[in-house]
Design a protein around this nucleic acid. Sequence first.
DNA 1: CCTTAATCCTGGAAGC
DNA 2: TGCTTCCAGGATTAAG
Length: 303
Amino acid sequence: MPELPEVETIRRTVAPVIGRRVSRVRLLRRDVVITPDDPFGGASRARGGRPSRQRRVRDEELLAGARIAELRRHGKQLAVLSDSGRVVVIQLGMSGRIALHDSRAAREAHTHIEWLLDDGSLLRFIDPRRFGGVRTLERVDELNELWTATLGPDALGIRADALHRALSRTSRPIKNALLDQRVLAGVGNIYADEALFASRLHPERLANDLSPGEVKTLAIAIRKTLRLAVEHRGSTLRDYRDASGSPGEFASRHAVYGRSGQACRSCESVLCSARVAQRTTVWCPGCQPHSSTRNTHRDASDR
DNA sequence: CCTTAATCCTGGAAGC
DNA sequence: TGCTTCCAGGATTAAG
């Protein structure tokens, strides 16, 4: 669920763990650990993979005994680097959360991993739907390999030329391309719709059909939308919370996401919605015309 | 290449 | 009130 702004907000609010030593780890659900045998985690479990056959996970792999040195984010993934060289990469999926408690707070449902730190604080990975998971790496260079092999450039700093390079290679609708983490890392359903609105681009325009000027506008809109969302500590729709338990404030500023059937704040047209890239997609028919031919597609049935 | 459907799982909201 | 159905911020694979 969390997209880049939410993960970045979590990274910032979890920063007090830097410099702390992990005195104890509790793995309450072994199958949230994504192993090389099960490289795709939740999705491969979806094919009927057997969690019971997961190999044993040693506490050291989850940083037991190590000192936390750095928190790094790329796209929607958060990496916890330790002075032992070991790394834990956290992917939150749809419903994943990180909680940092300063005392021994009660364990809530769906807590899968707990790290007890040497100052008495408690870091928890909580994920009701379990679409998320963690990977354990032995060395930092494996992190660089993982991220360069599976993720495109980070969306928060995306430049027009890099975006143009990535988009020119695919003829999918722009919305599909933006959701593909190998094209651009960090954008999900909310911020894809928001950035497309800010760029005045129809979500079904083809990625490799955008002019250089349109791509430049889009790159600027992505950076600006994400930066603004980070400033507002992310969007909370239902259960997103940062590591200290606070909701994000950005949802009230959404221009299109979640506003199907309501008036566009810019031109007062009624916002449209339809399935694009298998996701509910909202746009303004006035501000985001589908330049080619006429408007073929519309589905203003909201609610 | 690209699209669609299906899958993992829980819980909140809406419908009847 | 209670039961059922739909929907959700993600990511992946198989099949067409």
